[in-house]
Every structure is written in C-alpha cells, then in structure tokens.
C-alpha cells in the first residue's frame, strides 16, 4: 500500500496535482451548492418558492 502512495517516486507531483484538481473543482461545486441553498432560503422567506406547487 505504501508503494501505491509513493507513486514510483512521483508522489510529490501526482498527489498535489489531484489535490489541486479537488480544490478547484470541489470548490466550484461547493460554492454552487451554497449559492443554491442561499437563494432557495431567500425565495422561501419571501414566499416565492415554487417547489410542490402545481404549474
């Protein structure tokens, strides 16, 4: 298992690259989720929430 994490001596490049990808793409995903939750909360607070309503 430690051999896997060593990445043939390239661990110092492979793992940070994946961490950077996780930060960039995970970051935009989290921000999108938070923004959606915030907007939904505000819509509900103003009685504009349409979910459940038949249209």
């Amino acid at each position: 298992m430690s051999g896997f994490f060593a990445m043939g001596g390239y661990a110092a490049y492979v793992w940070p690259a994946y961490a950077a990808a996780l930060i960039a793409l995970g970051g935009v995903t989290l921000m999108s989720l938070f923004a959606r939750a915030r907007v939904r909360r505000e819509l509900r607070a103003r009685g504009l929430d349409r979910r459940g309503a038949k249209s």
Partner: peptide, 21 residues
C-alpha cells in the same frame, strides 16, 4: 463561465505538476 474557468485552472495547475518532473 465560472465552471469553465475552474476547469481551465485545473488544467493549468495539474499541467504544472506534470511539467515539473
């Protein structure tokens, strides 16, 4: 647009970690 920017940033940073070795 922000999703595209995040993809481009991912490409640049991971490319940098590949280019070093």
């Amino acid at each position: 647009a922000p999703v595209g920017a995040a993809f481009a940033a991912t490409c640049l940073i991971t490319g940098s970690f590949w280019g070093r070795p």
